[in-house]
Each structure stands twice: as structure tokens, then as C-alpha cells.
Write a protein that binds this DNA or RNA. Structure first.
Lengths: 116, 116
DNA sequence: TTGACATATCATAATGGCATGATATTATGT
DNA sequence: ACATAATATCATGCCATTATGATATGTCAA
């Protein structure tokens, strides 16, 4: 029996994993990195230059994205090239988010997470 | 010109919005609530009972989910019934996450976010 | 090996999100 | 109006995540 198109997802306590997974995209810097890599694989140095942030900061976020499976790395001489692991899936994820965000961008902008 | 199926998503600094949006699902409790509501709209009391958490805790998380547009509320006498705003889209989001998480669940479990 | 370059790791400090418990709000019935 | 039920809001304290700066690791060239 297959999963229904959009319901009945996993059960039990896998939720902790999902939460952690989504937290990978729950950061502006990481999102910028992912979107930047979605265009084209890049070295760490290129990402640092493109986003204008410190090398250690980018490197830390990259290692986070790597752990969660969003990207994978590959040495190329002195450099390390990062690329999005599954561009199609990540692209879909962002596309859906885009539609949902569009509807109430103003609300989201104000919400300071849990309480006000 | 339409958007490509999975690339070229928005530009500039809308990333902050997306990050905030994804952070809505970056919490185990909120994820459980969303999945619970995906089955069927429920009152706050039912959610409290189902998850076995304090009323204020659930209420806070619900207000967060509402701000981000995941759910919407509707009074029904003394109760307030919550439902997933766009079940199909949220369902797709979770379905994609499921596939991606499945690949490296072990990694994700260990990753303590940015640095170790 | 030495030096320069590219990236990763780590400790510390600052920040932000979360749970809790108490209180406020809204609705219903008598 | 009063009492009770259901939900929302708020203040406080705690914990997790993040940025920073320094240092370590790895790679290449001479």
C-alpha cells in the first residue's frame, strides 16, 4: 500500500528528526547558501565572497547543511566544492514555501516565533 | 515567463521570510500539531489531550503556526477549532521532507546544528 | 621543509526561542 | 450578574543556537 498523495506521513516520534531537518532551512544564512548553490556548485571561498560573511561562519553553516543532507562536499585541490544534494527536491520544497509565504508575507514578518 | 519547475526562486532578501516560515516546522511540538490537524480539524482541548502538553504551551505553538499561515482558527461556541490552511501543500512539504530525511536519518539525528 | 592558501574546528560570549505558571479574555448557562 | 469552561496572553527563567576570533588541518608549490 502506497502513501496517499499528501497525507498519512510517518508516525510516532520521527517528528524530532523532521523538526531538525526543517531547522536546516530555518536560518537566513543557510537559505541564502542553498539558493546560491542551487544555481551552480561553488567553492567555500566563492560562497564567502558572494554572501560577504566570515569564512568560519560560512564553514559552520555548510557543515550544518551537510549533516542534514542538503548539500555535499568534494575536495578539488586546495578548494572544497559544495553542491545541493538533491536540487529537484530542494527546489520543490522552496517552490511550495514560496506559494505559502506569498499568501501572508506580512504576518510572517511580524511573528516573533512563539509569543509576542 | 514562468518559473522553472524547481529553480530560480525569488531573489534578494525575502530569505528572512522563508527562514522564519521554515522555522514554523522546525519544532517537534509544532510538527506533531500540524500532523495531527492534517487528519482532521480539532479544538485546542483535543490537541492538548492528544499531545499531553500544557494548555498554554499548545496555545502558544498554535498562535505561532497561525502567524506563519500553517493553520487557521475558527470559534465554535466556547471552543476554537484549528485546521491546516492548505493541506495539499503542507502534505507535499512533509512528503518531500520524508524522502530527504529517509536518506540520512542517522546523520541528522547526530547533528547538533551548526558546530559540534 | 617551508610558506602560502583554503577550509575546518573549537571555545567563548551573545542572542533568541521555549516551557512554565499565573492571569486575562471570551463564551455559555443559570 | 455570577460561576464555570475554553482559550489566549504575558513575564520570567532556562536552554539551545549562533557569531566571533583564534587556531588547527590539509593542500600545493618551490
Amino acid at each position: 500500500m502506497q502513501l496517499a498523495t499528501s497525507e498519512e506521513h510517518r508516525g510516532r516520534a520521527a517528528d524530532a528528526l523532521y523538526a531538525r531537518f526543517f531547522s536546516g532551512l530555518a536560518d537566513e544564512t543557510r537559505l541564502r547558501i542553498v539558493r546560491y548553490l542551487l544555481q551552480h556548485p561553488r567553492t567555500v571561498g566563492e560562497i564567502v565572497a558572494a554572501l560577504g560573511m566570515s569564512q568560519s561562519r560560512i564553514s559552520n553553516q555548510l557543515s550544518c547543511l551537510k549533516w542534514c543532507g542538503y548539500v555535499n562536499a568534494q575536495r578539488r585541490g586546495r578548494n572544497v566544492v559544495y553542491e545541493v544534494a538533491d536540487p529537484a527536491a530542494i527546489g520543490d520544497l522552496l517552490a511550495i514555501a514560496q506559494r505559502l509565504v506569498a499568501a501572508n508575507a506580512s504576518h510572517i514578518a511580524v511573528c516573533t516565533q512563539v509569543a509576542l
